[in-house]
Design a protein around this nucleic acid. Sequence first.
DNA 1: CACTCATGGAGAAACGTATCTCCAAGGGCC
DNA 2: GGCCCTTGGAGATACGTTTCTCCATGAGTG
Lengths: 385, 385
Amino acid sequence: MTAAANQSGRRPTTSRRLERAGIRDVAAAAGVSITTVSDALNGKGRLPDETRSRVREVAERLGYRPSAAARTLRTGRSGLIGLTVTTYGEEPFTFTEFAYFAEMARAATSAALGRGYALVVLPASSRHDVWGNIALDGTVVIDPPDQDPLVSELYRSGVPVVSDGKPGNCPVTAWVDNDHEAAVLGILDHLSEAGARRIGLLTGTSTDTYTRLSTEAYLGWCAKVGQEPVYEAYPAHDPAAGAVAADRLLARPDRPDAVYGLFDPNGTDLLAAARRYGLRVPDDLLLVCCSESDVYAATEPPITTLSLKPRRIGTTVVNLLIDAIEGVDSGTGVDIARLFPPRFRTAGTGPPPGTLMPTELIVRASSQRRNPRTTVSPPRPPGEM
Amino acid sequence: MTAAANQSGRRPTTSRRLERAGIRDVAAAAGVSITTVSDALNGKGRLPDETRSRVREVAERLGYRPSAAARTLRTGRSGLIGLTVTTYGEEPFTFTEFAYFAEMARAATSAALGRGYALVVLPASSRHDVWGNIALDGTVVIDPPDQDPLVSELYRSGVPVVSDGKPGNCPVTAWVDNDHEAAVLGILDHLSEAGARRIGLLTGTSTDTYTRLSTEAYLGWCAKVGQEPVYEAYPAHDPAAGAVAADRLLARPDRPDAVYGLFDPNGTDLLAAARRYGLRVPDDLLLVCCSESDVYAATEPPITTLSLKPRRIGTTVVNLLIDAIEGVDSGTGVDIARLFPPRFRTAGTGPPPGTLMPTELIVRASSQRRNPRTTVSPPRPPGEM
DNA sequence: CACTCATGGAGAAACGTATCTCCAAGGGCC
DNA sequence: GGCCCTTGGAGATACGTTTCTCCATGAGTG
């Protein structure tokens, strides 16, 4: 080994292995100190432009890439955000609200990348060691169950947590949710105006916020207008159970003349069930379901759907989370911000700030009786979905 | 400050801030050295069980969580795998093969978690600083374009890269793909046996391996059996273009009596187009498309689909990648493995090892003719649905 | 008794960066 | 000439692990 090869001054005895250039190598090659290299590359410090550009050029020439691990260790920031999905089974993603999740995750990924963060997909059921092994700046939790131990632990350990779905008893930094009550009431009114006399509900048996709030809104509406509730609940994570429940609902003696299904496949299920019972949609049965899928624009008849606007949710959740991340540590320099990260603000404060976002009802033929359509949509070219 | 409070020996002057317990704190509390704590928690070293469990208990009591950043810096391993999706537009996920991607990503996530790794979603179009800021042990690339600069740089910088889709000119550690040629030939034979005389193809204009190999297989088959190729190509990333192309294909004077569509929405598109031209499926037109969606089990008629078995692909890709990751550094201790990481093995070796995986044809009504047909009906202008 | 050896564990050196502190030199100002 | 201020940059430390090296101690062995 030549002296030049060892000019960085480290490892005087052991042989120099082939490795990526470090900041030391750049400093040595540029004839400046490590400090100067760091400052030059990060745009900090007081350096003349000439030095800055020279250092940058040398770094480029050596193919220098800063070590993310070292930077994370030093700064305490990894640029990584966890995306946690509540799982019903073995799989990392939930099946039930799949289109919703996919859209939401996509928007969240975009939003995060736009602000320089990347998303790590981490099912809540992951091995604990996986969670512990990753430096996360914060976590997005989709639809946390009532008492999620994972969320509690994350929050306790000081990691900001923002949930999609109003959390039950988990402490979170912030949350975002749709205004499910308003959405359900809007649908029920819509169906009433279309002539429905007895509106049924296809709902789930799980205790997540979405199911709970929607069902409560339905029951409240029934009480208000004096209609006997007509609903069937089934385990929403079981794809086969939906069809059975739809069948049950339409087989009841007090069969509804309109149904709202809370879950994505309900539209198809209800349509099939209606066919089996010889019910025409919308003539004998009005139909609405909650879905992000555009297949319902092409069914026979097209089905009115409620969109939860997952893209808006995903974007908002991520932005809130990053705000929290960057707000905590990059505060005004007051030490309080460092002495009292969120974990210490739990007691004494009120509930975490939440944001309610509107939903969108996409009205199609299935919820409109023979009367001419009220909402005017432009004629579509053939074949477009 | 008391001597006891400072027994860890650090920060003799500045005041001790509220922070997560570190390994030093555990060592001090347990009355052992840092080494012992590390060994006890990681199951290394020679320690009596009594010491081991005592240290573990103290760590638990203090709520000790090892710093992932420090561990990564020290060990050079982050437990993070990049999942890169080629993007056609702004969005991080591609629309076109969405169900495929979703399934594949889900399987990949599962497989990775099962081996203690987590997946980071990183679109190829991400800001460069995001890529540089994350310590990745390896990367999965879905469907890399012919000359992907990102893949090249990753590979050059020593990060193992495994691609889903046989790579064009990118150097990768390994790749996995379906046997697209066999799949297409199988479908064409299947359609022939069902009575097809002229088989058309709905294909894409992009240059990815899937499109290219499939189209070539089709053209080769045509040449072999002496059929004039009948195909339409469209930009597969444009969801609206598929319907137009399907329409074009069925409007041709040499209208095919069977069509294979390479992309997921083609089944719906072709069905709609067939309806517009008054063609009955499967009587007048046999239909097959490549899709992972089970909506085709419920269409009228149900459509035969080719499944690329994305779950198998995702699992295989991740396992190959992790094998490469762990094989490189946890070798037999021979220094060669450390002196020559994959980046130095580029020259002189042959193409990277690839794995071809079988596809699965799910035969439904749309590709089975009830009674062999003899006449070809002339094209008609699009009428009412 | 003089050894070897296994056991249990401590010390300290990295890993590669960011940043706090401090210093030298030069110039303007009174 | 003494003083302060700005500019440009170097030194050293800390981030929290893992791991290599090495040292006591006591037991077995000839």
